[in-house]
Amino acid sequence: MNEVIRLLPKTVKECIQKLPEHKKDLIEEIRLRVQRPIELLIEGSPYTLNNQVIFSAQEARELIDRLSEFSLYTLEEELRRGYVTIKGGHRVGLAGRVITQKGQVKMIRDISSFNIRIAHQQIGAAVPLIPYLYNRGRWLSTLVIGAPQTGKTTMLRDLARLISQGVRNRQIFSRKVGIVDERSEIAGCVKGIPQNELGHRVDVLDACPKAEGMMMMIRSMSPEVLIVDEIGRKEDAEALQEALNAGISVIATVHGSSLDDLIKRPTLKSLLEGCIFQRFVELTRDKRAGRIRRVLNENGKSIRLIGEAT
């Protein structure tokens, strides 16, 4: 949290510091828009700070100066993608006027909206999954399925942590983990160094295209478990096949509500037909993100959840 507060312009900083301590810890997003009051998202509901305090264009410039350490050219790639990952794994989303070149986004100029998402790593989120995904000394290839905001990435991150650290009380030894982090969300890297707690045995290819990154990882880092976010393109299937042939388990996420839903999507068909994945985990969101709805085996049959009424 301090990493974020340090960046903020003075007026915003003061406003947030006036909040009571327990509220401050629950902030999920800080939204700043030029010439609008400051909005916070606390526990999923919006919370407008003092209406008198308006975020000015000057302050927006200051904020971007500080994000880039006074060197805008260091953010070229980030300005093309529309977000910056900062120390602590927090992420600042940007919106404003987009400059295009040959039909492709070149950068965002005149940035007018900032969305600072505070990262809360949920340590232990994936513990209930361990008995389903670990079998006879190896982690099974798994696809985590969920709609946006259901906690797929949180789950993935925690799985990465569990795999690289091992689980002492279940006699699961630690493994080498390779993460291909195309959107810098799993590891939250700053200058290549993961900001989230992921254990010692993790190698991260930050901001690398997935299919290519998976091949690179397999060739160069010999991971035992490969972790990727949001698969779905044709090239991904090939890379996944390659990983399996090399005896590497793959844990990936995909957008969707359920397995049946995925089978209808043409781009995913080849992925699912190849019997690549041995487990499917479906996530939903009720009051909070990350509820496990079902765990399915390779044939799409549901495996009963422990403690669930039959």
Binding site: S68, E69, F70, S71, Y73, T74, E76
Partner: peptide, 11 residues
């Protein structure tokens, strides 16, 4: 430094 290292001015 700027072109190849994308180093911030401070560094």
């Amino acid at each position: 430094e700027i072109m190849y290292g994308l180093t911030p001015v401070k560094e």
